[in-house]
């Protein structure tokens, strides 16, 4: 989760939120540090320590060295899981973006009452337990569930969704959509409508004005939302475990199997390190790209 929390900051192109408010810090330099202390202790005890333990075990159990990593990268099943995890996260991100973009846009053009309703629609599921929502999807998606009953009535026959990758993606998209909608809305609500009007008055068709003006200006929101959803999706456990098939397991499930089922703490740790490393690399990459883009786009 700590990685996740950094995502919106990393994706935003504004380089200088630190600039204002620097002056008062000089005099009472100790006080802000004191305010940080509780959070710092929490992170150290509940994040840094377990992380260090995991790293340590990955390199020391059952014996010291790169053994666990060699095992991970030389076992085809592990590579398959890693690839499946990334493709699932990618699909979830793309579908969530395609669904959220028009939704967030609607939020910016709706009246105050409409906007409140749309925001509530995003937030209510967000406040509901992840478990509850996942179980709800099980009920909806199962072969004798609401969805298939309805499809049956229309004559489209039963579609197997539960225990498939498609089912996992459907569930994850719904669970992660708030993380896409909210950053998109934040950026879109700052885009002056007159940019598009100006483009139209200068001879652009509606679609041209959207593609050339609105879309580039909304890119920071797309980047922030996509990163949040993608990184969250990489580490999802409950939803793929309940909605998916064991044959299509994602990396978090494999880690669980290694640690809880096979008591292979070293291998589980190594898998965690691989996931963390790849996520960090991705964050750095996105930060570099958006910083370059941020030099061109500033709102």
């Amino acid at each position: 989760m700590a990685v996740l929390d950094e995502a919106p900051g990393a994706a935003r192109p504004t380089a200088g939120p630190a600039a204002p408010g620097r002056a008062p810090r000089e005099r009472g330099a100790a006080r802000p540090a004191v305010l940080l202390l509780p959070a710092l202790v929490l992170v150290l005890v509940f994040f840094a320590y377990p992380l260090a333990t995991m790293l340590w075990r990955a390199f020391t159990e059952p014996e010291t060295g790169w053994g666990n990593f060699t095992w991970f990268f030389t076992t085809q099943a592990n590579i398959d899981v890693l690839v499946r995890t990334f493709t699932t996260a990618l699909w979830v991100t793309v579908i969530a973006l395609l669904l959220s973009y028009p939704y967030a846009y609607l939020m910016t053009v709706a009246g105050p009452r409409g906007r409140a309703a749309l925001t509530l629609l995003v937030l209510v599921p967000f406040w509901t337990s992840l478990m509850v929502r996942t179980f709800a999807w099980m009920v909806i998606l199962q072969d004798t569930g609401v969805l298939n009953r309805t499809l049956d009535l229309v004559g489209l026959g039963p579609v197997h969704l539960i225990r498939t990758q498609a089912g996992v993606i459907v569930g994850m998209v719904q669970l992660l959509m708030p993380f896409m909608v909210l950053p998109l809305y934040a950026v879109m609500s700052g885009i002056d409508r007159r940019y598009v009007q100006a483009a139209r008055s200068l001879g652009a068709r509606p679609l041209t004005a959207f593609a050339g003006i609105y879309l580039p200006l909304s890119l920071p929101g797309i980047a922030a939302g996509s990163l949040m959803v993608f990184v969250s999706a990489l580490g999802f456990y409950i939803t793929p475990a309940l909605l998916g098939s064991p044959d299509d397991a994602l990396i978090s499930q494999q880690i669980f199997t290694q640690v809880n089922g096979l008591l292979q703490w070293g291998r589980g740790g190594a898998m965690g390190v691989v996931l963390l490393g790849m996520t960090l690399a991705l964050l750095v990459l996105v930060a570099l790209v958006t910083r370059r883009a941020g030099r061109k786009v500033s709102l």
Binding site: D192, R194, Q197, A198, S201, K296, V297
Partner: peptide, 14 residues
Amino acid sequence: DIGMVFQHYALFPH
């Protein structure tokens, strides 16, 4: 066949 100048210019920032 019109041109328009807006109150806050609406120059494309990108």
